[in-house]
Write a protein that binds this DNA or RNA. Structure first.
Lengths: 237, 237
DNA sequence: TCGTTATCGGTATTCAAGTAGCGATATGAA
DNA sequence: TTCATATCGCTACTTGAATACCGATAACGA
């Protein structure tokens, strides 16, 4: 049994001088810790903001953005506040600044080089994925263990033999790798990449990579969204 | 200010007669509401369980499974309890039953037919994705608007013109579709599919689909994991 | 046979994310 | 000029998931 005794003080609004989320985001934009779900929504926001800017909008209001994306306006507003750009009543957020701030928060403000390892069917598809360009990500090299693939060109990127990977990654100072090799080969590739200076790996294989501290692995598992979908169908369908 | 006064009663363990999560999962396995994160972890569990069974294990303990996947043992145990299979002290869970229960929870216990719409580079890659077979999912037809692609065969599946889609989906009674068309074409395709009887859509385009109630859309956005990764690198790297 | 112990399964707590409600304000209309 | 209102940004609350902790039990070794 719990007894709550609450002394309640009426909330005081401080609209004119930011002191909450917004203030923290404005003060140190680089070290601002974003909630994971917010980070995941940012790319969607960026796309919508871009489209609205193309349509001539100079200001983006959270309600309009939320409507467009099927989200809650309050949630959207909180996400945008995290970017650290103040908005204006009855107008919204300045579109250009907002986009720049979100890009900065995601580390997409400056061009990033990446390599792709494993030019099979999934790897080839990713080489042609237009979305990477939106995110200032350019795939500067691709590698594959299959000697027959090596030498070919896929979507404008030359595929090289795996043996050249370590040297080239080191020479180009690439810090990000996209891993689309078979599960059995993933760990070995990851180790070579880390050794050559890679600090972030987007892992499409189903291997559980073990990497030294400081290296960040983000797993992408196509089975996960399928699991969510088929569970939902099995229950509600 | 809050003051909590708590009268504390010592927890009573009822090991021998299930009365918590496990009991609820055992009673009505079909209507058991699984937490979303649990559903997302299930495919990973299934893979690991399969490998351990191939290695001759008849029992799976939560600690071993957790160690293998880099997860917390308690979290793993709770996930497994959700499946509704009781475990045994010092042994673990019966592997075969556990796998069957998880498959049942995800709706992967019986074979499911699906169609793929959009046989571009990503679509072709998915046609070759081996993971779908593990999940009892078979892609029975593929469609594309490009007349040059129509007629070709990709990874053993014949690509047909988009005009045949509605009729064929209806005739084969397919309820699940994988949508890999360009964003501009996505909404129109979705409407045709729903009209033809599809109840679940795995949407790889970046369009925000609007569908009638009862139809479930699961979006897959390759930009999301990249956002998480690059944000992490920007902050910690 | 009997103690040891790895593992299960329960309750309680903590933490993170989403939701609710509202005062403050600038814009646009009357 | 004045008023109505859409929208911001704050605090507080609710919900859901992860974590902590521990009694009960069956397998195993001595």
């Amino acid at each position: 049994m719990k007894i709550f005794i609450i002394f309640y003080r009426y909330p005081r609004c401080t609209f004119n001088r930011p002191c909450g989320i917004l203030a923290r985001a404005m003060e140190n934009p680089k070290e601002n810790p974003l909630p994971l779900p917010t980070i995941r929504r940012y790319p969607i926001f960026l796309r919508a903001i871009g489209e609205m800017m193309d349509a001539g909008e100079a200001f983006i209001s959270s309600s309009v953005l939320a409507e467009r994306l099927g989200l809650d306006p309050v949630l959207t507003r909180k996400d945008l506040a995290m970017a650290g750009v103040p908005g204006r009543p009855r107008r919204g957020y300045p579109a250009e600044e907002l986009r720049a701030a979100i890009n900065r928060a995601l580390g997409w403000d400056s061009a990033t080089d990446a390599v792709l390892v494993g030019a099979g069917s999934l790897g080839s598809a990713l080489l042609g994925y237009a979305g990477f360009k939106e995110q200032n990500l350019s795939i500067v090299a691709a590698f594959d263990a299959n000697p027959r693939l090596a030498g070919s060109t896929v979507h404008g990127v030359k595929v090289r033999p795996l043996a050249e990977m370590a040297r080239l990654v080191r020479r180009l100072k690439v810090h990000l790798a996209i891993l689309t090799v078979p599960t059995a080969a993933a760990q070995a590739c990851a180790e070579t990449l880390v050794e050559a200076g890679v600090r972030g790996i987007l892992n499409f294989s189903s291997a559980q990579l073990s990497v030294p501290e400081g290296v960040i692995v983000q797993n992408v598992d196509l089975a996960q969204p399928l699991a969510v979908l088929s569970h939902a169908i099995a229950r509600h369908g």
